[in-house]
């Protein structure tokens, strides 16, 4: 067979054996344009594993034991330091997520103003092309979808960390989301 014919043969084979499948679970690499709020909050919490503290040298077992003993002796101090750092990290991650919410709200207001502008344009008889209208509709649909996904993720995360629902979801209140 020539290399140029191999792909067609492979496609035929694939079609013939389509009924034979493999389990679907496990790692499936996904691209993301930025870390999700969920990931940011997970990374914000520093939880070092004592078992990872070891010597990589040959015959390093005594060094490993010494390091781990020292860490155990300093456990209370490290817990204190970590709690301070974690508090800062979690607050920063939450703030970033709240700022994102506020940005979305502002974008929503801008969109509202755009819509109003279009209405006024319509009243004044300014013609908009069909392509413009369709593009606006698509943008609005995408934005609504993004907002819903983000709200869902944030609420899941808040629930995981035992935080109350955000002001947006709870419909008001005096939480951080309202500030």
């Amino acid at each position: 067979m020539r290399p140029e014919d191999a792909l067609d043969a492979a496609r035929r084979l694939s079609a013939e054996h389509a009924a034979t499948t493999i389990p679907g679970e496990g790692l499936r690499v996904k691209r993301s344009t930025q870390p999700s709020d969920d990931q940011l909050l997970q990374w914000a919490v520093v939880e070092p594993d004592l078992r990872e503290v070891r010597s990589t040298r040959r015959l390093g077992a005594p060094v490993t034991r010494t390091k781990q003993t020292l860490l155990r002796l300093l456990g209370q101090y490290h817990a204190q330091v970590l709690s301070v750092q974690n508090r800062v990290n979690v607050h920063l991650a939450l703030r970033s997520s709240l700022v994102r919410d506020e940005l979305r709200e502002l974008r929503g207001e801008v969109d509202g103003l755009r819509r109003r502008l279009r209405e006024v344009e319509g009243q004044l008889g300014v013609q908009r092309s069909d392509a413009d209208v369709r593009a606006d509709e698509r943008a609005a649909g995408r934005q609504a979808e993004d907002e819903a996904t983000s709200r869902r993720q944030q609420e899941d995360l808040r629930a995981e960390y035992g935080l109350p629902p955000s002001a947006t979801t709870a419909g008001g209140g005096d939480g951080e989301g309202a500030r």
């Binding site: 492979a10 084979l13 389509a18």
Partner: peptide, 9 residues
């Protein structure tokens, strides 16, 4: 499945 087919070919 096409990649699997190619490998087989």
């Amino acid at each position: 499945g096409v990649i699997a087919g190619l490998l087989d070919v």
